[in-house]
Design a protein around this nucleic acid. Structure first.
Lengths: 251, 251
DNA sequence: AAACCCAAAACTGTTGACAGTCGTCAGTAT
DNA sequence: ATACTGACGACTGTCAACAGTTTTGGGTTT
């Protein structure tokens, strides 16, 4: 299986003297990782109700650890109704917008900090990453870039570069799971990929110039544009009720 | 006992059609609220190890719900070590600083949104609140204001006024618990109260002028100052090793 | 006296089971 | 045919108990 013990950000040289190489992973932790994988993979429809017993049986564990994992996912990827059960979170357009607003605030700050804290070698690696993205974009133009992991890699690198564990935790453990889930349903507007790529280059330039203000400004503009794009995309899909809008609310 | 079913922000008119008046509270939920109350009240020392069995016995519940509640507090108010147990979170100076940095990002955005979304009556109420604070400050000058609930009330009102549930959740469910815990140990510098009060008035003025940029700028400056004050306060207490620094690490 | 080793106690992680509640559906009345 | 009532089934919330590990304390050795 080879599941990572720590959900997303597993940097070995985090704290100065923090040595915890052998991360004894509990069943609850493993269940948490598996659940994130499964839910963000789009296997279940938004709003779909999930059975604890069924999940526990499928994961091969008891309901105790599973409930702990679900408790951690509550409000992020699943919703709980007291005596009813759990269901996959179902984003309303307003909630998606708020997701981007929070991202704008946090990642803007991350870019500001990254402009001060990222090493030159890290910045060089980020430049290489962008070049690679540019080549991929030439080959397969369209919406693959903005939705794919390429976009995430760029933002991850900057979040890491901020050297702020609290920021990392909030963004990577909370928001990015939800964002990934949202992307499964919403398709980016055509042309957005090229735009996003250009904005990434602007951000990199601001980082290279070591200007916190410019870095934060560029990042916030980038995410604000992504939000507006997501919103118009949602409205478009709501206007043409294809299969996207069908939600299985079983209650 | 009259425990509130929802931890902090229990506004009755939140969503447009969100009706959930009868909140069937589970034992895990109650345990969560109680644990937040107890830990943020400073009953346990930072770093102190807690026994699950002992807590369960004191709360009069089984270990199942308690473990769920502890799982939700993990990374916020308690730290877990896989086969060892849980202990009250112990802030290093850098983590306190990061707390304020995240606050600066999120509350700055909240102020921006509040400048657009708060009603005139809400702004009037906020003005009354500040006036009240001014009178209390005249009576009892010093650090009571900045550390007390008065400061929180002001910020709460603005966070509410942003009309952004995601922002609310992150700030109120996560950061403010930690902030309260930090304040138990760190004493604000003298004179900071007056400064903070003046900054609050600036923020209110920006909100009244309906200027998002000014509101965000004032709020961020306010929180940045609070961070610098907290840091110098920590360094001062570290230089004079009084009882503040004694930590009971039982491992 | 200090360091080491070993056994007992305590604790965490996990499991299976039980009670109360909710959703569903057949049956009946209108 | 439609609406209401009751019981059945499934599920959530909760608890007590079990296995493996960690900590602690005493006893022994150097």
């Amino acid at each position: 299986m080879a599941t990572r013990p720590i959900p997303l950000h597993s940097d070995p040289q985090s704290g100065p003297g923090a040595i915890e190489p052998i991360a004894l992973t509990s069943l609850a932790e493993e269940a948490f990782v598996k659940l994130v994988q499964v839910i963000t993979s789009g296997r279940y429809l938004p709003g779909q109700r999930l059975s604890e017993s069924e999940l526990a049986r499928q994961l091969g564990i008891s309901r105790g650890p599973l409930r702990e994992a679900l408790g951690r996912l509550e409000g992020r990827l699943v919703m709980r109704t007291p005596r009813i059960g759990i269901r996959v979170i179902d984003f309303r357009p307003e909630e998606v917008s708020q997701l981007f607003i929070v991202r704008e605030a946090l990642e803007g700050m991350a870019a500001r900090l990254a402009a001060e804290h990222m090493t030159t070698s890290e910045l060089a690696a980020l430049g290489d990453l962008l070049e690679e993205h540019g080549r991929q974009q030439d080959i397969s133009p369209g919406q693959a870039y903005h939705q794919g992991v390429g976009d995430d890699d760029f933002h991850f690198a900057i979040i890491k570069g901020a050297r702020c564990e609290q920021l990392e935790r909030l963004l990577l453990d909370g928001l990015y799971y939800q964002l990934r889930l949202h992307r499964l349903r919403a398709s980016a507007q055509p042309g957005r990929a090229k735009e996003a790529f250009g904005e990434h280059r602007e951000i990199l330039a601001a980082l290279l110039s070591r200007s916190p203000d410019a870095a934060e400004g560029c990042m916030r503009r980038h995410i604000r544009n992504a939000r507006l794009n997501a919103l118009s995309s949602i409205q478009a899909s709501a206007a043409s009720p294809r299969e996207t809008r069908r939600q299985q609310r079983s209650y």
